[in-house]
Computed example of a mutant assay.
Amino acid sequence: MDVGKLVAVIGDEDTVSGFLLAGVGHRTADSTNFLIVKTDTKLQQVEEAFLNFSQRDDVGIILINQHIANDIRHVLKDYTQTIPTVLEIPSKEHPYDPEQDYIMQRVNMYLGGGN
């Protein structure tokens, strides 16, 4: 029986809490599908969470706050898979900037918009 795919979330406390309250949280004895990034969260931990989520068969979408995505942009630029799809989202403190979103940059490139 196919039970579908999970949405993984990497974000600040407000963002992750909101998605968990909406029901996207999944926890097993070994793992979760979310990472709350705080000011003392090490960059390596964020990179490892992204790499882990991107290699899991049960994850279909990875949501990441754009300001956090900017911190691991070097990892995101090397990511070429279609699934899980990576979507950059705004946070309460950081508005969305489409010029920083690598997916939007690729879309513009394919549509002949430059970059």
Rank of each mutant, 00 (worst) to 15 (best):
I103K: 14
V75D: 10
L111W: 12
Q105R: 14
T39S: 14
G114R: 00
A49G: 07
A29M: 12
A22Y: 03
D30G: 00
G23W: 01
V7F: 02
Y96F: 14
G4A: 08
F19E: 05
E13C: 03
G112P: 06
D30N: 15
D78T: 10
G23S: 04
L51R: 09
G112W: 14
I10T: 06
Q100H: 02
D40A: 12
Y102R: 01
G11A: 08
K42T: 15
I61T: 10
I36N: 00
I10E: 00
L87K: 12
V37D: 11
Q55A: 12
M1W: 00
L6Y: 10
K42E: 15
G114L: 11
R73A: 06
D12S: 06
I62Q: 03
S31Q: 14
R27S: 12
F53W: 05
T80E: 14
L76P: 08
N52T: 13
N115W: 14
G18V: 04
E48R: 11
K92H: 09
L35R: 09
I64A: 06
L63F: 14
A69P: 03
G114M: 02
D40K: 08
G60T: 06
P84L: 11
D12V: 05
V7E: 01
D2E: 15
D78H: 13
L21D: 02
V7P: 06
I68K: 05
H94N: 09
D97G: 02
I89S: 03
N108D: 01
I68E: 11
S54L: 04
K5M: 12
M1H: 11
L51I: 11
L6G: 04
F50I: 09
Y102G: 04
E93N: 05
S17Q: 03
H26T: 12
L21M: 13
V7A: 03
T32F: 08
D101A: 11
H74Q: 06
K77H: 04
A49T: 11
L35N: 11
E99A: 10
K5P: 02
Y102A: 08
S17M: 04
R73G: 07
T28I: 04
M104L: 08
N70T: 15
N33Y: 01
T32G: 03
Q44F: 05
L51H: 03
R27N: 10
T39I: 00
E13D: 14
Q100T: 09
D58G: 08
D101S: 11
Q45V: 15
D40S: 13
T80K: 15
L21R: 14
M104H: 14
I68Y: 08
E47T: 02
G25L: 11
L51S: 07
V75E: 12
Y96E: 02
N33W: 07
M104P: 09
L51G: 01
E88F: 07
L51A: 07
D58C: 07
D12Q: 01
T39H: 06
Q55N: 15
N52V: 03
I10V: 08
L43A: 06
M104S: 13
D2A: 10
D12R: 00
Y102E: 14
E47K: 12
T32H: 04
G113W: 15
E48M: 13
